[in-house]
Write a protein that binds this DNA or RNA. Structure first.
Lengths: 177, 177
DNA sequence: TAACAGATATATCTGGTAGATAGGGGGAGT
DNA sequence: ACTCCCCCTATCTACCAGATATATCTGTTA
C-alpha cells in the first residue's frame, strides 16, 4: 500500500476557509485544529509548492496569500472521502508505566499526578473552546463541536484513569510516599 | 533541543524481559505493547546494531539472541526516568469530521458508525487482555494492568462520544438517512 | 523423498514527518 | 537611524513506518 501524505488534506482544508500565506496556514492548523492535528513548516511549504504546480492552489502574485482553485476544491473533497489512515500508537507515558517496577513506584506516582493535571487543564481548555465556537453559529459549527466533544470525552477519561491508577498504586504493597 | 530516539527505550525494555532476536523484539512489542506502542524493522535493526556497538546489548555468537548487559540495564533505567515526549496529534477521523459539511452528512454518519464499532471491538479486546494478564500474578502485573485500564477508559470514552455524535447529527436539520 | 506453505529472521530503501535553524522584510518604539 | 519583534519563507537533519528482498527452517502433503 502506498503511504499517502496527510499534509495535503490539512493544507487544502485550511485554505478552504480563506486564502492564507504558508505561515498563516500553520497558525490556523495550530490554533483551530491543534487539539487533533499538527503540521510543521517543513511539510507545509513543499506541499504548497506542489499544490501550486498541480493547479490546486494559486497566488495572484508572489506576495499574495495562497487561495484554493476549483480543482483544489475538488481535490479536497476527494481526499476527505478517502478512508482515514490511523497513525500507529506511540505513548511514552504508557511505555514508562509498563516498565514501572524498574522505574520505581514513586516516579510512577509522579507521572500519574502529571497526567491528571494535564487532563484537568485540557478539560478546562475544551470547555472554553466549546463556548467560543458555540457563540458564532455557522453551518460548520456542529461539526467543529463534534471534534471538541471528542476532546472532552478523552480528557475526562484520562482524568478518571489517572485517579483510578493513583488509587491502585496506593493499594500496592511497597514504599509508600 | 536534541530529539531522542524513542526506539532505544522500547527495544531495551523488551530485552529486559528476556534475550531475543530482532524479529522477536518486534513480535513482543506488537503483541505485548501493541495497544500503546509500535516499532518497525526499519527502526529495530539499526537500533540493535547501535546498542551492540555501545555495549548495552550483546550476542554470544552471530546466531544467538541479543541480551541486555549491565550497562544496558543502567541505560534502560536512565531512559525510563527521562520525561516522556508526547507525539504531536494526528487524527484523520477528526480532520474529516471537522470539514464534515464538505464531506456530507451521510459520510460523517458512516465514519461515526465505524468509530463506534471500532471502540466496541477494542473494549472487548481489552477485557480479554485484562483477564489474561491478571491470571498470572508477577511483580510487573499491576503496572501492565495500569496500561490496560487506560485502554479501557479510552475505548469507553470513544464509544460514548460516537453515540453522542450520532445523536447530534440526527438532530441536525438536513438530509436524514 | 520431493515439493510446498508458512513461520522465522535479517536487512535495506523510499518517502512521510517533526523540529531546529537561518534569514529577509517591515512596523513600532527609542 | 537603530533595534527589537513579529511575520514570512525556506532548508536540513534525524526520526520513523511500511514495503520489499532474501534466505533459512520446519512441518505437511503428495
Amino acid at each position: 500500500m502506498v503511504r499517502r501524505s496527510q499534509t495535503e488534506l490539512a493544507v487544502l482544508g485550511a485554505l478552504s476557509v480563506q486564502p492564507m500565506t504558508g505561515y498563516a496556514v500553520r497558525e490556523a492548523i495550530r490554533d483551530v485544529l491543534g487539539h487533533f492535528w499538527s503540521e510543521s513548516f517543513g511539510q507545509i511549504y513543499p506541499t504548497l509548492a506542489a499544490l501550486e504546480e498541480q493547479g490546486h492552489v494559486r497566488r495572484p502574485d508572489r506576495a499574495a496569500p495562497y487561495e484554493l482553485t476549483a480543482s483544489g476544491q475538488r481535490r479536497l473533497r476527494d481526499l476527505l472521502a478517502e478512508p482515514a489512515q490511523k497513525t500507529p500508537p506511540r505513548n511514552g507515558l504508557m511505555l514508562r508505566l509498563f516498565f514501572g517496577r524498574q522505574l520505581g513506584q514513586a516516579a510512577c506516582r509522579a507521572l500519574l499526578h502529571q497526567a491528571r493535571d494535564d487532563a484537568e487543564r485540557q478539560l478546562a481548555e475544551y470547555t472554553g473552546l466549546r463556548a467560543a465556537v458555540a457563540a458564532e453559529a455557522t453551518p460548520d459549527t456542529p461539526y467543529a463541536l463534534l471534534t471538541i466533544s471528542a476532546g472532552e470525552h478523552t480528557a475526562r477519561a484520562a482524568l478518571a484513569w489517572a485517579e483510578d491508577s493513583l488509587a491502585a498504586l496506593d493499594a500496592l504493597p511497597g514504599d509508600q510516599p
